[in-house]
Amino acid sequence: MSAGQSRRVLPGFPLALGYTLVYLALIVLIPLGAVFLKSATLSWEQFWTVISAPRVLASYRVSFGVSLLAAAINAVFGLIFAWVLVRYSFPGKRIVDALVDLPFALPTAVAGIALTAIYAGNGWLGQWLEPLGLKVAFTPLGILVALTFIGLPFVVRTVQPVLEDLDTELEEAAASLGADRWQTFQRVLLPVLLPALLTGFALAFARAVGEYGSVIFIAGNVPMVSEITPLLIITKLEQYDYVGATAIAVVMLVVSFVLLFLINGLQLWANRSRART
């Protein structure tokens, strides 16, 4: 801190920053540190054995694979959704727009049992889908439905403001140069929207990977088939295998931090390209 800053005009900086740091340390940093410390009681080989057990590997495949697919679905439909909300007027639009945030606001357990009721063999949609050979509930497909639900707002809410800020001049210029709508979208709009779209995709993916509540009801939780990694952590905890649970948690945390880092970078990129347009 240089001498010039030592006397600040606005008051309260030491108090505010001090409080922030202490609270952050107590609630977030120390508990997270505990996870890493606990995993350090394992030797590298023990650690590796735990995190690469066949059942654990299968859970990664389910968690990351389905999350990726759900995020991709959300990227496509979220973009269409945001486009429709910004560009078109239709009756009931305000309600539709407000309800986009439902997955943020609705407790995950509630979402989980509701989706299960819909897609179970005797459910509203399940009873029509199962005769067609499409089992949704209690299969990986059910996980996909749940993760698509909880990831939906991320893409819409990151793309929507960018679309709203977009000047019509850009498209007018493209049109005056002879581009048709599809060309304009592909070559002019999509590049502008891409940073926000990727940010939304990454956010939806990160959220889906860690999701627990909405998934466990509909997943069926069959080991090696439809068991997600967070559930495996809980299973280990219930068997008092704290070290095993912690080792898997460390893997997930590392992935989360990498994702967070990536998302930060994407957001920086998004903000910068937004400032440019």
Binding site: V28, P31, A34, V35, G210, L231, I234, Y242, S256, L260
Partner: peptide, 21 residues
Amino acid sequence: TLIDLPFSVSPVIAGLMFVLL
């Protein structure tokens, strides 16, 4: 970034941390 950290941690791990402590 650190303030945003809890958003990227799975709720299950959030619970686990406090069990470990």
